[in-house]
Design a protein around this nucleic acid. Structure first.
Length: 423
RNA sequence: GGAGAAAUGGCAGAGUGGUCGAAUGCGGCAGUCUUGAAAACUGUUGAGGGUCACACCUCCGGGGGUUCGAAUCCCUCUUUCUCCGCCA
């Protein structure tokens, strides 16, 4: 959520920057400002009324104490009008605050200056590419065929148990999944991230805290009996650790990593692009999360990007990095780098990681602050990234490492798997 | 799931209708002393709104109510603890 004071100060800058998302925010920003003015006017009036009421209450108390019962009762008789006024002003204030908040919920984060304008993923800017795309034989198969051939992932079985998009991993497939999770966590902890295990269901407040609610209401699985949401990413529970916290100086940097399954309804997705592991309702992901001071957050973002690069280098997968354009940028992000692995057998790029800086957008909702040098509370910056998401990495490995003799396991994963080939 | 008890500042813990944003202790910060540190002593130390700065307003788990006045009384929800039941 954007900060009111910043909106007041930077209305035109914000409005211009938001154009990169292809939205004209001028009207909303103006409404926000006028609503905020209205809110403050009501607040001032309410404060004055309450001050008067408080003053009289104290006087009445003193009069009773000193035995001046009649005077006290006279004064008492004069309070109902003030009470009425304060009640009405209080209701007005609540309504105005609610309206204001609803409006603020509708405004996405302001894109970073480096974000290119654009409408869709076609306008994303490739900033880096590395790795060799392997030459595959004529018999090369897409991963869903390989999965069947070697009996390592059973999509139909998942349909039987749960539905489409809930695959069952078997034998070496299951072991490879576990190996990847362990490998990713090891890499992350070696880079200074503290491993953490968090709930896979979150409450409504947490959903609002990181911005999934109300924006992505229909995308999360909702357990209505208990009003809990299945997490779409570890970002939600991990970042919410810091909700309502004031971080003491000296506690930075804050770096967490966690493995969780992720649940996404993916309402509206269909077609060839969702085949196999390309798009699932449940998948595994290892996430890295950081809380930073504003001065260091973009350096932290670069570090996270470098970190993910190192992992992909070790896995020897061909990949590229995109700077997302305004039209493709997530609602809460100020800047996002997407990592895509090249899926040779499908001849297309698959998104495997998304590394973002949210600046103060989430922190403002979370009330996540820190004490600056002057001892003043300031909103922190939050960041997160996948390091990494499993299914498409798995798809990339299966497809790029396939040979006529079977699927070679990337060298770094062999110790984790206990085998070097799937055949 | 049933019965009972509880929820107060970073922590511990007092406060059962008025001058309480809240004693006290610990912790934090600043200072005195010291070569330095520790100890001791002195001061300071919650958050948000508002203001140039004050004033002023709000917050004692959340929400609602009673009252001129609520941390304190009532209702409700949530959470924690104890006992019982169930259970990986």
């Amino acid at each position: 959520m954007l900060q009111l004071q910043k909106i007041r100060e930077n209305k035109d800058t914000y409005s211009n920057a938001l154009k990169k998302r292809n939205i004209d925010a001028t009207g909303v920003l103006n409404s926000v400002i006028s609503l905020d003015e209205k809110r403050r006017a009501i607040q001032t009036e309410l404060d004055a009324t309450l001050a008067e009421l408080n003053k009289r209450s104290k006087e009445i108390g003193m009069l009773f104490k000193s035995g001046q019962i009649k005077e006290a009762n006279d004064l008492k008789a004069k309070t109902p009008s003030l009470k009425e006024a304060s009640k009405k002003l209080g209701d007005d204030l609540d309504q105005t605050s609610k309206d204001l908040q609803e409006l603020l919920f509708q405004i996405p984060n302001v894109p970073h200056e480096s974000v290119p304008p654009g409408n869709s993923d076609e306008d994303n800017e490739e900033v880096f590419r590395e790795g060799t795309i392997p030459e595959l034989t004529k018999q090369a198969l897409p991963h869903w065929e390989l999965a069947k051939k070697y009996d390592i992932i059973d999509f139909e079985l998942g349909v039987k148990i749960a539905g489409a998009g809930f695959p069952v991993y078997k034998g070496k497939g299951a072991r490879l999944q576990r190996a990847l999770i362990a490998y990713f966590l090891d890499k992350n902890t070696a880079a200074g991230y503290t491993e953490i295990q968090v709930p896979h269901l979150v409450n409504e407040t947490s959903g609002y805290g990181t911005g999934q609610l109300p924006d992505k209401e229909g995308q999360m699985y909702h357990v209505q009996a208990d009003n809990l949401y299945l997490i779409p990413t570890a970002e939600v529970p991990v970042t919410n650790i810091f909700r309502d916290e004031i971080i003491a100086k000296g506690k930075f940097p804050i770096k967490y990593t966690g493995y969780t399954p992720c649940f996404r309804r993916e309402a509206g997705s269909y077609g060839a692009h969702v085949r196999g592991l390309n798009r699932l309702h449940q998948f595994d992901k290892v996430e890295i999360i950081r809380v930073e001071q504003p001065e260091t957050s973009y350096q932290a973002l670069d570090e996270m990007v470098e970190h993910v690069k190192n992992i992909l280098r070790e896995l020897k997968l061909p990949y590229r990095i995109l700077r997302l354009c305004g039209g493709d940028l997530g609602f809460t992000a100020a800047l996002t780098y997407d990592f895509e692995v090249f899926s040779t057998a499908q001849d297309r790029w698959l998104e495997i990681s998304s590394v973002s800086n949210f600046e103060t957008y989430q922190a403002n909702r979370l009330k996540l602050r820190f004490k600056d040098e002057n001892g003043k509370s300031q909103l922190a910056h939050t960041l997160n990234g996948s390091s990494l998401a499993l299914p498409r990495v798995l798809a990339g490995i299966l497809e790029n490492y396939q040979t006529d003799e079977g699927i070679q396991i990337p060298e770094v994963l062999v110790p984790y798997c206990g085998f070097d080939k799937i055949n």
